[in-house]
């Protein structure tokens, strides 16, 4: 059961990554990237690394996405 969940999550990850590559709207890309980060945090939880998961959720997803949105707001939205 957990194996299946893991595989699903990983597939999600890959879809998100490809989505980031293809979406031309940068804001959507950042949002997809946050989703990617959160799924990653979930996977790490699955892999019994809760500490890493927490840091990823907070820093890798939260702070990084915030910074990116700030950058986009100062530059432009579409690629």
């Amino acid at each position: 059961m957990t194996e299946l969940l893991n595989v699903l999550l990983l597939l999600f990850l890959i879809v998100c990554a490809i989505g980031v590559a293809y979406i031309r709207d940068l804001l959507s890309a950042v949002i997809l990237f946050s989703a990617f980060g959160l799924i990653m945090a979930l996977i790490w939880q699955q892999l019994s690394a809760p500490d890493v998961a927490m840091v990823e959720a907070a820093l890798g997803t939260g702070v990084a996405a915030l910074l990116m949105i700030a950058a986009i707001s100062k530059t432009r939205r579409e690629e």
Partner: peptide, 27 residues
């Protein structure tokens, strides 16, 4: 991709994937 913000996002994805590998090794 030539857009710089996109490059940064992709850079993060690349790094995170290596972290995933690392954590998976330790699992």
């Amino acid at each position: 991709h030539s857009n710089m913000v996109k490059k940064v996002i992709a850079m993060n994805i690349m790094d995170t994937s290596v972290f995933l590998l690392f954590v998976a090794i330790g699992y």
